[in-house]
């Protein structure tokens, strides 16, 4: 039971991560490979603040969002000068830089040793250290972020973002500020990524840089693409699928050592097949196929 709750909590984390990436990658067309970096910034901010300065989670979360947002803003000033492929390579570079800061700045992050002893979250004097209460808290955040992102996508600003992802030059020609909208979208996306970061740090109570690697970024991006760009429900379903996939493999009787690699092979293959056929997400892949046979 504890383990099932743990899986549900992981699903919440990846839903938050993939939906926040969907804001920049899906709605705006800014495919970023630096998302695990911002996730890590969230985790490290709250870890350092709570272990060294005794800050509570509730103060840590807005601060983590602010710091992650500020860094994303600076990064976007640089990265948004490039387009398409070069943007992805640029964000990949930023991901490597963020990782090597987490891994090497011993004084601040304790490098590969990681930060242990992050306190659990307390709410109105209650300690949320049971899995059930933590799951409820995570669900609460998923609900808020989902609601906010849905409203952003339906707002006028969201329409501008969609227009940019479809035709950047046309959007500019009808007087939309493309550069500003992209910056805002990228920064917001990184701020939302800090939320699962802080939750993760307080949940596991120990963080080290290996949770925030390029591989993690690729994994989150795969969730977004498998779920469909600009499709928040799709991101959630894809997160459920990819988190439960290794469990399913274990259920079939595959040993753990192989299951980890098999999971990556399977999501890599889905990514290739879905993108190869030019479909947006698995849903469209199947629905359009059905239409063709009719």
């Amino acid at each position: 039971m504890e383990y099932i709750l743990h899986l549900f909590i992981l699903i919440c984390f990846y839903t938050l991560l993939s939906q926040s990436l969907n804001l920049s990658a899906g709605f705006t067309g800014l495919i970023s490979l630096a998302h695990a970096g911002f996730y890590g910034i969230g985790a490290y901010t709250t870890a350092i603040l709570s272990t060294q300065f005794g800050f509570s989670f509730w103060l840590g979360i807005p601060l983590a969002m602010l710091i992650s947002g500020a860094i994303a803003f600076i990064v976007s000033l640089i990265a948004l000068r490039t387009v398409e492929d070069y943007f992805i390579i640029c964000t990949l570079g930023i991901q490597v830089i963020l990782f090597s800061i987490m891994n090497n700045w011993m004084d601040l992050t304790r490098g590969p040793l990681g930060i242990p002893g992050i306190p659990s979250i307390s709410l109105f004097g209650l300690n949320l250290d049971s899995k059930v209460s933590f799951l409820l808290l995570s669900l609460f955040f998923v609900a808020i972020v989902w609601f906010v992102l849905r409203n952003i996508s339906k707002s006028g600003f969201g329409k501008i973002l969609t227009a940019i992802s479809e035709d950047e030059i046309y959007s500019q020609s009808i007087g939309k500020n493309v550069y500003l909208s992209k910056t805002v979208s990228f920064t917001l996306s990184a701020m939302f990524a800090a939320i699962p970061g802080t939750l993760y740090a307080h949940y596991i109570s120990y963080i080290d840089p290996t949770s925030f690697t390029v591989t993690e970024s690729i994994f989150v991006l795969s969730i977004v693409i498998i779920g469909g760009l600009g499709n928040l429900t799709g991101s959630f379903l894809a997160a459920v699928f990819l988190v439960l996939l290794p469990e399913a493999l274990r259920f079939v009787g595959m040993p753990d050592s192989i299951a980890a690699n098999m999971r990556q092979i399977i999501y890599g293959l889905i990514l290739v097949v879905v993108m190869m056929t030019g479909k947006n997400g698995v849903k469209e892949f199947f629905t359009s196929k059905v239409k063709r046979t009719e």
């Binding site: 495919i31 690729i218 991006l221 795969s222 693409i225 990556q264 092979i265 999501y267 890599g268 293959l269 889905i270 990514l271 290739v272 993108m275 190869m276």
Partner: peptide
């Protein structure tokens, strides 16, 4: 993106 998938 496909080539990243292939790489994985």
């Amino acid at each position: 993106i496909v080539s990243i998938g292939l790489y994985v």
